[in-house]
């Protein structure tokens, strides 16, 4: 564990908490993509299957359980409790266009051809693109509430901090995982346009609004 890794995990946790606060306080999931949330739930479940096979640390187990349970809770809030506020019409991204290619790629490019390893690889590829339905929703509506912007910023920062963690680990421990690094870089790149808008608009007190 190094400072970048810890900051990345905390940023990830903050993102999830911000999202839950937004939905709970406003009693609404408007502006949030249920499709992205479903993809994230698939990511956590398929990645953390090793919870039942391997014990790594209390921290590791705790965080995995938090990520799985909060993503299920988010889906419950969106599709059951605050269903009426869900922006169904704008959330029209077809997730099978992400699920199928990620799974095929995981079958082709993986570290070992075993079920757990393929599902881990699939989750890494899927996580890289799981935010696309959310970004698509923001681009369709042309704006995002500020708390949604903070959520997206924290979520994007998490993988960017992991990139620093991987650079650190490469030099400090000689450790690297090309699949994670490649997918993490793609994931971070997808947020760049949003980061730019966040820094130039939201941090200056303006609403995140896309140019018409």
């Amino acid at each position: 564990m190094n400072i970048f890794r810890l900051a990345g995990d905390l940023s990830h946790l903050l993102a999830i908490i911000l999202l839950l606060i937004k939905i709970w306080k406003t009693r609404s999931c408007a502006g949030i993509s249920g499709k992205s949330q479903i993809l994230f739930a698939i990511v956590y479940v398929s990645r953390y299957l090793d919870l039942v096979t391997t014990f790594i640390s209390v921290y590791n187990t705790f965080m995995k359980l938090v990520f799985i349970s909060t993503s299920v809770a988010t889906i419950y809030l969106m599709y059951v409790k605050f269903k009426a506020t869900y922006d169904h019409n704008h959330d029209s991204f077809r997730i099978e266009f992400l699920l199928v290619p990620c799974f095929l790629l995981a079958l082709l490019i993986n570290n070992a051809f075993t079920p757990l390893e393929i599902l881990w690889t699939f989750s890494i590829y899927l996580e890289a693109v799981a935010i696309l339905p959310q970004l698509f929703l923001v681009s369709k509506t042309g704006e995002a509430e500020s708390i949604t912007s903070h959520y997206l910023f924290a979520l994007g920062s998490y993988r960017a901090l992991y990139l620093l963690n991987w650079i650190y680990r490469y030099y400090a421990e000689g450790h690297y995982d090309l699949i994670a690094i490649f997918a993490g870089a793609i994931q971070t790149i997808l947020y760049c346009d949003f980061f730019y808008l966040y820094i130039t608009k939201v941090l200056k007190g303006k609403k995140l609004q896309l140019p018409a």
Binding site: H12, D50, I56, F67, A112, L116, W120
Partner: peptide, 10 residues
């Protein structure tokens, strides 16, 4: 490569 059993990252 790192086997799944040794992956400590989240």
């Amino acid at each position: 490569h790192v086997p799944t059993s040794e992956k400590d990252e989240l």
